[in-house]
Design a binder for these strands. Sequence first.
DNA 1: GATTTTTTGATTTACGTACATCAAAATTGG
DNA 2: CCAATTTTGATGTACGTAAATCAAAAAATC
Lengths: 340, 340
Amino acid sequence: MRPTVHDIAAAAGVSLATVDRVLNQRPGVRHVTREKVETAIRELGYVRDVAAANLAKGRTYPLVFILPASDNSFMHGLNAEIRQAIVRSSAERTDIRTIEVPAFDPAALVAVLEGLSREKPCGIALVATDAPDVRAAVDRLVRERFPIVTLVSDLTGSLRHHYAGVDNIAAGRTAARLLGRFLGPRKGEIAVLAGSMLVRDHRERLEGFTAVIAEEFPDLAILPVLEGRDDPEVAHRLVADALGNAGIIGVYSLGAGNRGLIRALKEKAVDRVLTVIAHELTAHTRAALIDNTIDAILNQDAGHEVRSAIRVLKAKADGLAVIEAQERIRLDIFLKDNLP
Amino acid sequence: MRPTVHDIAAAAGVSLATVDRVLNQRPGVRHVTREKVETAIRELGYVRDVAAANLAKGRTYPLVFILPASDNSFMHGLNAEIRQAIVRSSAERTDIRTIEVPAFDPAALVAVLEGLSREKPCGIALVATDAPDVRAAVDRLVRERFPIVTLVSDLTGSLRHHYAGVDNIAAGRTAARLLGRFLGPRKGEIAVLAGSMLVRDHRERLEGFTAVIAEEFPDLAILPVLEGRDDPEVAHRLVADALGNAGIIGVYSLGAGNRGLIRALKEKAVDRVLTVIAHELTAHTRAALIDNTIDAILNQDAGHEVRSAIRVLKAKADGLAVIEAQERIRLDIFLKDNLP
DNA sequence: GATTTTTTGATTTACGTACATCAAAATTGG
DNA sequence: CCAATTTTGATGTACGTAAATCAAAAAATC
């Protein structure tokens, strides 16, 4: 049986009230007494029963999710997962609110973050736009003891407690190796379609991709990046244009908005042997994988990311440890054979 | 605020005691009264607060894990994960016991299962040996209302509540496509190293593998399966012998015990261009992936499987729903770039 | 209609923790 | 040494549920 507050009180030779004062850092405990209690806690290996504590406190975990207002399948999926989490919130004692901010707008994000320090949520998850101001705002909140996790796109160098997303450099490298190996001995050019080079995750994917191609597949030449702004129309036009180049033998689509890409491929490349790697499993990319328009899809599971962010924020709010391996967001690689 | 038993009592116009009798299926409630209460429960959307209930009951979840006594890295890893879960057990209110049974021995497994119906654990997880007797024993336990999940290897056609493991047919198919695509236009023979064709997961992987090779890669011929019994020595000898065949251009190792395979490859195939796909990420296979001896590793995360099995068993014991997407065990594909 | 049986209500204690109150004790300052 | 202050103890209530007891009411039986 795990020890209770009563056991601590008995072991430390103090009353329950004093143990309570120490545990909940209430004032009015002499230093020596506090030490005695803390020793007892350590020696008995006491861990607060969070369920009982939450019951007594009637505690809920007010959490805030800050998301960019981007209209693409991935963000829609992420939103849907958050809504699912909201449905579960009474059972999980969470109270989740989402805030939409204009995409790629550091100032707007900073404004929202500043506002939160007054609202006092017990945890914040944000899809970070990578900018010094954002980093500063996040660091400030962390110093004010708000648990913060970045979601999908990280803010390296900041003090955020955790990142719930995939390693995008690894994702880019993996895409490069898959493409290189699938192409085998063929020589030619590779088109890269991104959303915007202003987003950290896209930059990182490209960085990993070009590194591996350069190191290990010297017969492949990467063409200048097409920035489709994650917009189907723009992407379609860019890819359709690019396919005029007969030297292209492979495509890496590292952003969202694959609808345009897929349409362009179906119009312009039915008769060509192209190897295509794309990111994010959606209804469109899934269909394209099945009909062989796309050869592999790299994916991050939005549901896992959301659930992980919530678990981590709750744990941080309670000062508890997390199971690291459980919170690592994995890069899913889907071929047509292992689709969920 | 979610409704409590008090709200139910008020809504149904009965006392708290009656609500309790209905909720905990205690006797002494007239049919009409029970209906009234059940209606109120439905209408208010009452869900028992499991944390409070467990607190009141002082409940723990006695769980039993039945594992084969196999001496390979994967089973060691699985054991380690269960030990981790045991460390967490006081916080999670679980009380986990493992039972080792001789591998590939249906009779022994059945004997253990029969013994459990007297012990009354509140959930059972087992690595199933696929045999009619085992299926019958499992079905019997399910009928006696024991929550049961299969772990790693499923028991299709049985009444088990859940399978915490990967889709092995999909795994085999994925391996085939990776191998086929990596080999590109090359023609040649493929060696397959398995543990034993008596285990369902190995059979299924082979089935998926041969199906895709046959359908889509007609230039590749699969050689008769080498059964290494997941033993490094046996595997080493078999693979070393097989590599005498100069027509082999690819290897699929679908079982555990890759140490022998890796040693054989390093001894006999340094000068050859072999594409190798293996299962299970271990220290050995990881090193081999990094030094290019292996080209891709398919993996199932034992930690996820164990945690998932525990979550599902607890939920079933409480009659609660699980988050399906969360409990799906994914097939991890590792290239050297996305290693964890 | 009286008796037995079944059903229901009222009440209490418990789980482990949080939090508040009031009194008692110990410590500090002058 | 007394007063003021700080520290500690004792105690009670609450959270939502489980489980038990005993009395009261209702229903079923004869």
